[in-house]
């Protein structure tokens, strides 16, 4: 289905340029998709170190994690999850438009996606500021409640490290997205860039998936 869309776009547009080392556009696309997925596999393991730390520390000190988790703002966390899920939808629509050679919708969906991403980062920044204010930001100024169990501070170390690494990935994604918008704005032939949009989309969805796991692990430790 998708390939038919691509073929139609190619037929109605200028041919996609093929780099010298490839035989044809199909081989080029196959290589790009494979390369992107391998890159995402490295990203899984990059975040994986933190998930491992989370798993073993939580297994050893469940009570401290439980107490600390309740200091996170569930409403903001849920809202942010909603924003990211929506941005994944708009990103998918951007890729879909690019593959069909629709320039304006592509740019529009990309800008929508980036606004949702910005909203996410703004809320995240607000949450961080709040944690600094409450002395729950790890480091020399951290003050745990007097009755806190062991592991309480470690939860916040992991909370900031994991969401921070995720936020860095979001910010990097936003920068690339805006560069992409400028390129598409100047170019007439969206289909020529549809590989780029598609590969970037994979990255954006991946960042979304990381959050899909971070949200329950950090915000939803048994609220009952």
């Amino acid at each position: 289905m998708r390939d038919q869309g691509k073929a139609a776009a190619v037929a109605s547009d200028l041919p996609i340029p093929v780099a010298h080392q490839f035989d044809d556009a199909r081989q080029q696309h196959e290589a790009a998709a494979m390369g992107m997925w391998i890159f995402l596999a490295t990203e899984i393991l990059f975040f994986g170190g933190l998930f491992t730390g989370y798993a073993v520390y939580r297994a050893v000190e469940p009570q401290g994690f439980h107490e600390a988790s309740r200091h996170l703002d569930l409403l903001l966390g849920t809202l942010n999850t909603g924003l990211l899920l929506t941005s994944s939808l708009t990103m998918a629509l951007a890729v879909h438009s690019a593959e069909n050679g629709l320039r304006r919708p592509t740019i529009g969906w990309l800008l929508t996606t980036s606004m949702l991403g910005l909203g996410f980062l703004a809320i995240k920044g607000y949450e961080y500021a709040h944690k600094v204010h409450e002395h729950l930001w790890p480091g020399p100024h951290f003050v745990a409640p007097p009755d806190a169990s062991r592991g309480f501070e470690q939860f916040f170390v992991l909370y900031v490290s994991m969401t921070g690494l995720h936020a860095i990935h979001m910010a990097a994604g936003l920068l690339v997205m805006w560069v992409m918008v400028i390129i598409l704005w100047r170019s007439r032939h969206v289909a020529r860039h549809s590989n780029f949009v598609e590969m970037f989309g994979l990255y954006w969805h991946f960042v979304d998936i990381v959050w899909i796991f971070l949200f329950p692990l950090l915000y939803l430790i048994d609220r009952s």
Binding site: G53, P138, G139, P140, E153, Q154, S161
Partner: peptide, 20 residues
Amino acid sequence: PVLAISLGLIALERLFGFGI
């Protein structure tokens, strides 16, 4: 990537006192 994150966590600990 796992080496990268393990060194990154040392950085957080040395520079910002995160203490992971």
